[in-house]
Design a binder for these strands. Structure first.
Lengths: 150, 150
DNA sequence: TTATTTAGTTAGCCAAGCTAACTATAATGC
DNA sequence: GCATTATAGTTAGCTTGGCTAACTAAATAA
């Protein structure tokens, strides 16, 4: 049995637990119409990284998505086949590639993202302006503390 | 082209966008060691619903996980094979079943959950107590506004 | 009491995940 | 320079997760 944690640690864990549940609920809510993009969750997620973090190598993309290189290799092949991303040679390393979203890729992603945002915004509309401001602040804080090393 | 949205709607969409990104970043962070549960994401997620919302029927579980009944059927079969959930007959409907987590199922899930919570709490520890309180409040608000109809 | 609906499974397919093994290029060591 | 080792990416072959279609069995409605 682990030793009893300090009250501060316990409090922090309660906060973490609540945020964790909230994040799960949030993504469950927003992904409801994702199939209208015509893309599977894995492809949609990979495409969004290419759009927002690209140009990016297949290897870095695999690490970002927490999957192995072979898995990403066939997701990228599918995205390329559907003309959603393009492969460019790496100028300095002939083994490497750079992936960039095509115009179509950006468009498909953006439409899906807008649907998600709208679904979420509809729920947030039920809150008071102060509560909405509080959530805006919370989002900022979270991004700041999660982005760096993750 | 869609008509220009009102400033309030635009603000709400910005908040939604930020929360959406934060939720994605949060779950990317916490799931890093999930493989130590020995369960795939699909099974782990289904098990967590059984633990927290059980007893539950396979059909309701499929709806909660946003997958089809056949898909859930074989996830449940796997969870049962590994003695993580048990099937009980439904007293009032002999077609139906009720799924309950076993002691082992609860334990496996709880250990994984604790790992996730710790990963997140570690990040939150970098924030001031006021910011931590703000996040606690935000988590509460979000759960309140997302739980109902989703 | 027949017809329809509902709960769940089975079959058969493709995508998504893995490890192992491969090709090709880059970097290192001598 | 040349051999070794390391790195980027793919291919092969397997399991799991997702789907639709088709089925069985029980419940409900006509």
């Amino acid at each position: 049995m682990a030793p009893k944690a300090s009250p501060e640690v316990e409090r922090l864990h309660r906060v973490a637990d609540q945020l964790h549940s909230a994040a799960i609920a949030l993504l469950r809510t927003v992904r409801r119409d994702d199939d209208r993009t015509g893309l599977s969750p894995a492809r949609l997620s990979a495409l969004s990284v290419v759009v927002f973090a690209g140009p990016i190598s297949p290897g870095d993309l695999a690490r970002a998505e927490q999957v192995t290189a072979p898995t990403m290799s066939h997701i990228v092949a599918a995205l390329e086949r559907e003309d959603l991303v393009a492969r460019l040679p790496d100028a300095e390393d002939r083994r490497a590639q750079r992936l960039e979203a095509t115009e179509k890729g950006r468009q498909v992603l953006e439409e899906g993202r807008q649907r998600r945002i709208r679904l979420l915004a509809d729920r947030l509309a039920a809150l008071t302006p102060e509560d909405q401001r509080l959530l805006a602040e919370a989002g900022e804080l979270l991004l700041r503390v999660l982005r760096p090393r993750s």
